[in-house]
């Protein structure tokens, strides 16, 4: 068997306020899950970043992953107008110091509109620095369409999309915006991944599980055995994510 290095771009830990069928309380528990499923590492966030506040959650995440090279952090963003988080170069330097190389936006939880009127030049800078911004597709495809129209060079990853095969909704974005990406979590259409790669190339897909809400085992076996070249499987499993994170200019 070709040895494929799996990296999960969409995993989290921390106790969710509303409870869940399966929780992952700590970074250590997450690492145990990665080991169980044969993953090399993960890009992670903490539940406090959406259940509480990015002001607290970003710090909690940074402390939890410190010194663990298998966990790379993502920070959550807030509108610059309220000055709760820095929006100048110091923010990006702090990301680098904390081994944080991507961002998440949770507009519904923190009640803001994810668009140019709110984020202005901040997201221009995120785009220029090629820092990946993750959003859940549940924020709505119209929001994502508008965001890409306003920031066409933004590296945007629509994550945690459901099992209903929303190709009719996301394929127009893939055609138009080369930096628009999808994670694989619950993109489980039979032969969906291989067909998408045939039309759009493997660069648009990142291995993601949406753990702990969804299991890692499903996407693990699906990507390991999908009908693609070994190179494409390796890229989707981990290399695409690591390349994106490497390109992020933080200093």
């Amino acid at each position: 068997m070709d040895k494929i290095a799996f990296w999960d771009c969409n995993a989290s830990f921390g106790l969710p306020t509303r409870g869940a069928l399966k929780v992952c309380a700590s970074a250590d528990e997450l690492v145990q899950e990665l080991d169980w499923h044969g993953f090399s590492g993960a890009l992670v966030y903490h539940t406090a970043q959406h259940d509480q506040s990015p002001v607290v959650g970003n710090r909690v995440l940074a402390e939890a992953i410190a010194g663990n090279p298998r966990l790379i952090g993502s920070w959550a963003i807030l509108p610059p107008q309220t000055s709760e988080l820095p929006s100048d170069a110091s923010f990006f330097r702090a990301m680098e110091a904390a081994n944080v190389r991507a961002l998440w936006a949770f507009p519904e939880e923190h009640r803001f509109l994810l668009e140019r009127l709110t984020f202005g030049s901040f997201l221009d800078e995120v785009a220029e620095r090629r820092i990946p911004l993750f959003v859940r597709r549940a924020i709505g495809w119209p929001v994502i369409y508008r965001l890409m129209e306003q920031y066409p060079n933004l590296t945007l990853v629509a994550a945690a999309h459901g099992p209903w095969g929303e190709d009719r909704l996301f394929r127009p974005l893939l055609e138009r915006y080369p930096n628009f990406k999808l994670d694989t979590s619950r993109y489980e259409q039979d032969m969906g991944v291989s067909e998408l790669v045939r039309y759009y190339g493997h660069e648009c897909l990142l291995m993601g599980s949406n753990y702990p809400a969804a299991p890692m085992g499903g996407p693990r076996l699906m990507i390991e055995r999908c009908d693609l070249t070994p190179e494409a499987r390796r890229a989707i499993a981990g290399e695409n994510l690591l390349n994106l994170l490497r390109k992020a200019e933080l200093s």
């Binding site: 169980w36 499923h37 099992p163 489980e188 259409q189 039979d190 032969m191 969906g192 991944v193 299991p215 890692m216 085992g217 499903g218 996407p219 693990r220 076996l221 699906m222 390991e224 055995r225 999908c226």
Partner: peptide, 12 residues
């Protein structure tokens, strides 16, 4: 759905 996704959830 790809049976491998479902099988993976079960066997892991």
């Amino acid at each position: 759905f790809d049976p491998h996704y479902a099988i993976g959830c079960i066997i892991f």
